[in-house]
Amino acid sequence: MEALILAGGTILAGVFACTAWFWGANLALDLICPARGPQAGRNILRANMVRPWLFIGPAVLFLGLYLVYPVLKSTLMSFQDASGARFVGLANYRWLAGDAKFREAILNNFLWLLVVPATATFIGLVAAQITDRIRWGKFAKSMIFMPMAISFVGAGVIWKFIYDFRAEGLAQIGLLNAFWVWLGHSPQTWLTLPFWNNFLLMAVLIWIQTGFAMVILSAALRGIPEETVEAAILDGANPWQLFFRIKVPQIWGTIAVVWTTITITVLKVFDIVFVMTNGEWGTQVLANMMYNWMFRGAPDYGRGSAIALVIMALVTPMMIWNIRAARRETG
């Protein structure tokens, strides 16, 4: 209850502060440079030069505080020792290169990268096409989209239950084991099966991201001119050819944007692994490894920062490409 009041109060205060700033700053500017009197023309020009800065000022300030500064600080820390007391040169990176767990994390991230964006985009595309055709498509759509509203941590907890294990003979509360036992096998501790447990974790993210892919791609599919589809029907294309040779090529740009957006999410994946396996049994990923070094046990800020920078180096090119592609789509 107290937390609720606190949250509500914070939201109110935030909205009030924003309004007060934009309104007040605007008013102050108009007072300093009044749009009348002998200097009216000059004042309007001046005010128009200042006004944009008043409005984007807070955003620039907060971006600087919470984005630019941490990047600089992390870079610095990655060249320092565990406590940030002295410089160690490239020692942290040299350690990374030789660390087996880091290699595992890189490999796993790569695996995630191969599987999750492709699968989520593909299922989303198919779902977009099918839900537009069937009568209960709207309902199906909202069901597929629903997981988007669940936090990764929440999703991780839900899926942990699905993969849950009870000893043989006990009632299985995990959906997967219940099914597995029903098929006549003995129950498995799924999340400890090396290699395959990675895919069980990926399923969670796919479950979440498919809805996103579906919504975006469904809008793109609707944007395809109906006549091109009709022309293809007259040309003799069957539904399959219609979809893959006429529709999909026309929305390649959007598919690429969806794909890269999910790719970026995948590179940063942390919560799911943290909640479900904490990187044990061969499921470590970069973001979780960074968290472990940064904040658990005896923290090593140097190594944690080095891993953070590796993640950033991987994400940035994707990000740039993604923004470019999105601009091409809309412009």
Partner: peptide, 25 residues
């Protein structure tokens, strides 16, 4: 065969591919 007011060309195919499409199918 039908010719549409809006042309309805396949935007991702060259002129040649547009004309070939039906025959390829």
């Amino acid at each position: 065969a039908m010719v549409f007011q809006s042309y309805a060309l396949y935007p991702h195919m060259t002129v040649r591919q547009n004309m070939e499409f039906a025959l390829k199918i």
